[in-house]
Nucleic acid binder design. Sequence first.
DNA 1: GATGAATGAGACTTCATTCAT
DNA 2: GATGAATGAAGTCTCATTCAT
Lengths: 193, 193, 193, 193
Amino acid sequence: MKKDKPKYRQIIDAAVIVIAENGYHHAQVSKIAKQAGVADGTIYLYFKNKEDILISVFKEKMAVFVGNLQDIIRDGTSSSEKLKAMIENHFQVLANDHHLATVTQLELRQSNKEVRLKINMILREYLILLDDILIEGMETKEFNPEMDIRLARQLIFGTVDEVTTSWVMNDHKYDLVELAPKVQHLILSGIKA
Amino acid sequence: MKKDKPKYRQIIDAAVIVIAENGYHHAQVSKIAKQAGVADGTIYLYFKNKEDILISVFKEKMAVFVGNLQDIIRDGTSSSEKLKAMIENHFQVLANDHHLATVTQLELRQSNKEVRLKINMILREYLILLDDILIEGMETKEFNPEMDIRLARQLIFGTVDEVTTSWVMNDHKYDLVELAPKVQHLILSGIKA
Amino acid sequence: MKKDKPKYRQIIDAAVIVIAENGYHHAQVSKIAKQAGVADGTIYLYFKNKEDILISVFKEKMAVFVGNLQDIIRDGTSSSEKLKAMIENHFQVLANDHHLATVTQLELRQSNKEVRLKINMILREYLILLDDILIEGMETKEFNPEMDIRLARQLIFGTVDEVTTSWVMNDHKYDLVELAPKVQHLILSGIKA
Amino acid sequence: MKKDKPKYRQIIDAAVIVIAENGYHHAQVSKIAKQAGVADGTIYLYFKNKEDILISVFKEKMAVFVGNLQDIIRDGTSSSEKLKAMIENHFQVLANDHHLATVTQLELRQSNKEVRLKINMILREYLILLDDILIEGMETKEFNPEMDIRLARQLIFGTVDEVTTSWVMNDHKYDLVELAPKVQHLILSGIKA
DNA sequence: GATGAATGAGACTTCATTCAT
DNA sequence: GATGAATGAAGTCTCATTCAT
């Protein structure tokens, strides 16, 4: 499996750094190769093309969010607690890796429709887990059982995403994780029963 | 003033159509010129460069939102009513012009950091009016006086934006304006006192 | 019509020279552009892509052969005379332009299957005229009325082509046109009644 | 001697198949290695470089033609009979191995000048034997003693080659060997006394 | 002898912008 | 003011060959 070889991760990590520092459109393959410490051609032993690198970056990093969220769902007590944990986790992961935050919130969004579509497919997995929490909370009557799940999901993801993007655009100059309690409260007030 | 000449508007309108139909990255200046019925060179008599066209498109179209919102603020009764009107207006304007919706929600976001920063500057005018509504509501105690205005703004804009983007991504296949009451309720529950 | 503009011919002529002097695989677009005295991009105002240049070179130059052959057919007396004139014309045109001879006999044959197929399509026009001469000669009994036209055509074209290619491979170091009478005699002995 | 080891032949045979099935320009060394069932690097234990493979393919296969032709010359009665046998043999060998025919008539001709020159050197051995037949025939007055040997050779080889190439280009869809008598007749009429 | 992961040079094409008419 | 022909910079990917194991 290519993904288990050390160079695979080297290239993924190099791509995050190069994209964050140079911007999406100036992240040439040769720059990524140099940052990863491999030859240009080596990139193509591990990735089909440049697009594949970008999508793989998103996929690999998203796996962290999804993995954490699965733990949260398994270990959480109430649906509210799970939702709060999800929000905090989202902030924490990105606050811990400024490069990654810049890449997911700003740079990767400049990609063309094809890449964006594939990114959305990957994102869907995360959103389905969010839906699971919402459904559970509606069944236990923690959340308003009458609410529109899709809109609730869009409220939550839209808010979390907007808060994060603003933080990145302001050069991470304040503490993102610190905002979690207030965001949790705003969102929960909106959806609870 | 160049903006009052007919070709200025012709080019702006052509740009919206060309970007919506071809996507941001395939919206060449020559295509916009052809759609506008002018020569390539003529574009540069009205705009400094391609970036200037894109920013002008956003600026001109944003003026509609801002104008409407100013009317809403002037004519509205309570802060809640104003906020509700704002949300409905946002949906209505974009539901009425699918090309514009595609351009603002999907295509223009593919622009580079520089353009996006300028777009954010323009957006700020709109968000300041939103802040005005929020401040007023907090003063009249309609909204929670303790809440963080910035986060409240991000909740509202993030949600409205996410709902709209999802609608565009689903090819406008359901009625966006119809969603307004539920979105208003979700948001107001979150921020009201 | 692009073909009538001076730059079209400039580029065609430049391509012949560059291919002859550098070889098919080292005839970069930028070299052709420089030889033609235009910018790289200008090439693409007149040709769809590099392949299109190569095919156009062959098409334009082949037109000379075809044009001459049409004159020969119109003006010739007997079929034998027409065939002899065709052979001599073939040698003369290539003997007069060593660059062209190198390109058609050696370099263009290194092209990929797609280009070669298109080249063959163009060549067909020439071969059809040759067939016309053969058919006429068989009807007038100048040529053996029982012979296989396709084989006769292959004898003629194969011989003329082989003689020319050998001449090019020997660096044009002897007089090609001088060989015409002997070649004519060999071929005519084979096909005459 | 490397040539006697089994892998040498394996690679030669693999090259013929890969070139015939993929075309000259898509016959990568790695494909040939895989077809031969050896590692990429192993190729270089038996051949100096890729060019060497191609030339060796031609050399090995040409040996069959030369061997047959030597038998023909030794066993033949008259020069005409020898020439006829040569033509028939040429057709038979290629008709019996369609892959080989495709490779020699179409694919190998796409090689660069350097390779083609070396191929011509190998071909020379075959053409010298042909010359031997012609000289003998001129001495015995079977053939026109005044004719230009080089041109006669080019007539014969050019015709045989053109007939074969056309057959390959038409996907071997008719019987090549069946054409031999007519081709022999056309050619002999041209050169006989 | 055999392997196969790694190397790195090299070129076609697009498109925003200019400027002579 | 309007035109549109011309410009030229810039980057992805392939594949023959090597060499440590």
